[in-house]
Amino acid sequence: MAVDFELIMFFILAGVGIGTAAGMLLSRSAVYSALFLVLNFGAVAGFYLFLNAPFIAMAQITVYAGAIMVLFLFVIMLLGAEKLTPPEVLPWQRPLAVVLAGILILEAAYLLFLRTPGLGEIQMPGFGPDTSPAAIGAILFGKYLLPFEITSVLLLTAMVGAIVLVRPRKQGGGQE
């Protein structure tokens, strides 16, 4: 059997995703971390394309890699946080975090590969249901209309909250 092209593509993208996540965790500068995270979001968007979810892939690029990470970079630059000295860490915390994360991965691998009957395979071009923006919009505004409206309230609350939080305080001039 010839080498499976889709499997090779999967492993390349997975390497990019995990490598950029490691770069984000390990880099000293917050700016580098943010840029690594943008690459990571790009890799995950590639997986969404494999998984027959093109609309989500594009939303991932525009909302996560675009809007949210620009907000992050903006705050990093605003605070000058990339120049902060690396803080003191208790010596046992970092190895403990790595060990606990490794245990989580091992446990999930045990459950997925040894205890689960085969879940099947994913063929890349994808049959399955229609995943065009029109189909997603139809289900979003039909079955999930109420959660959608609640999301608008959530976003409005977050916007007002962010503005109220960073508003400069009046120096003693407020109403008592």
Binding site: A14, L51, A109
Partner: peptide, 9 residues
């Protein structure tokens, strides 16, 4: 073809 377990792991 990529097994689903790979995506989940």
């Amino acid at each position: 073809m990529v097994p689903i377990e790979y995506y989940l792991i």
